[in-house]
Design a protein around this nucleic acid. Structure first.
Lengths: 254, 254
DNA sequence: TGAAAATTGTTGAAATTCCAACAATTGCAT
DNA sequence: ATGCAATTGTTGGAATTTCAACAATTTTCA
């Protein structure tokens, strides 16, 4: 049962989510383990920066926001902003937009909220919906489906069925990696939704920063001929560029 | 020196601002007073909603920083926790749960994440989905629809159509107000989704704190006979209680 | 001024937590 | 199978906190 500790840690975090502070004794009772185990969990989670101890309990760590990620964000922020702006330029004429999930897609969504209006945006990403929703002149439609905690987005059969009855002028998709075969994603569930989105749109833009070049991931969600445009922040390596040309993928380097 | 207590309270808040948790002994030493004085300060400040006690110390109150809201949140936090716990007790046997939107519903969702497993939760609220999603043993399904920025939830025709093809053991709904006519909501779009949810579930629980008693809002989303149980934190006024009895609504006062 | 109220300190017993050391169990690799 | 490492429970004493009761001091205000 190697999973048990992980589950316990998750529950401790969930408890802190609801209650600002927890007590060792209370938690031990709730989770059916000894107080010493809880104490050890606390030690470990403290080292991991997830919480901080108090006498008799623990509280959420100061910098442990719900979705505080590692720092790739900060490093590529400027690049992503450039990609996002170039993307919005490229879709300025669209009236119905499909948008996928991922950090870059959220940047695009923010730019869309800033610069577009009187359009409809359809997405399966909570973060994208929240970002675009800031603009009251934009209609935001949420795709149904299984909630995927890691990516805060919906996936699965419901999502795909829903997409079948949809039309969009344009779809904007992020990617975990870009290879000669096509764009791919680390999570098969997300990849499946991406594929379904792609099939419902007249035009397909893939947005990805240079760190994705030549990185293969488990599931390819498109072939290059299906992609209209790739928006990125640096010229791709020769091999990839060649493939793009062959398949008539328009390349936008922001 | 009547000012001394005020100054001390300010310093305690300041310390809490920098440290996320303080200890009684440490504070007593720093401020040059006895531990009992600090304890009494804590009691007082807890009643004022500025902090909450831990064994050996205190932490900042949950709703005390981000937006410096009025106190409805802070004051009712404990009550909502109680309502949430009682609600989970009441639905412990359900396998498929529908959950609406609102602050109280989110509290219920957090408790569900903590205490239930191997169930399916269907919701139209982003916050509920995120809260329940913390628990990997729970399947979370998101309802499609127009994204409603103010409430971070989905509404509209797509949501209602989606709900038609759904069954749930139990639905948990918040409310803006509770009158003799039934529970009502300030936003017609949300009320419409609530009604649709209610029609798909075998049992209907309404959760609402006492501030909702006898408050009418624009759109009534249910008649009392449709409601199985009302979970609240104080006995309702006589008129309302009578109506509940007449309509066989089970009353749970947490 | 004088008395009630508020504030703070002190004290000692009870409850709780902490910590280190050791034992039992499980999973995993050699 | 055997041994090692990781995980968890148990135990007992030390340290800390809590709580209630009472005393001392200061503030308020009639």
């Amino acid at each position: 049962m190697k999973q048990e500790k992980r589950e316990r840690h998750a529950k401790i975090l969930a408890t802190l989510n609801a209650a600002s502070s927890v007590r060792v004794a209370e938690l031990a009772y709730q989770l059916g383990v000894s107080t010493e185990t809880i104490r050890r969990d606390f030690d470990e989670m403290t080292r991991a920066g997830q919480l901080s101890r108090t006498y008799g309990g623990a509280v959420r760590a100061l910098s442990a926001e719900p979705h505080a990620q590692a720092q790739p964000r900060g490093l590529l922020l400027a690049e992503r902003q450039r990609i996002a702006k170039a993307t919005v330029d490229a879709v300025a004429d669209a009236r119905i937009l499909l948008i996928g999930s991922g950090e870059t897609a959220v940047h695009v969504a923010r730019q869309i909220a800033l610069r577009m209006k009187d359009i409809t945006v359809v997405t399966h990403s909570f973060a994208v919906a929240a970002a675009v929703g800031e603009n009251h002149r934009i209609e935001v439609m949420m795709i149904p489906g299984r909630y995927h905690p890691a990516k805060a987005s919906t996936t699965g059969g419901h999502a795909i069925v829903f997409l079948q009855s949809l039309y969009a002028d344009c779809v904007i998709l992020g990617a975990s990696g870009l290879t000669g075969d096509g764009p791919s994603h680390a999570l098969p569930e997300i990849a499946a939704v991406n594929t379904a989105m792609l099939n419902r749109a007249a035009r397909c833009l893939v947005v990805a920063d240079q760190s994705k070049f030549d990185q293969p991931f488990s599931t390819r969600f498109a072939d290059w001929p299906q992609v209209s445009t790739l928006v990125t922040d640096a010229p791709p390596p020769a091999g990839l560029r060649k493939t793009l040309e062959t398949n008539r993928v328009k390349l936008l380097v922001a």
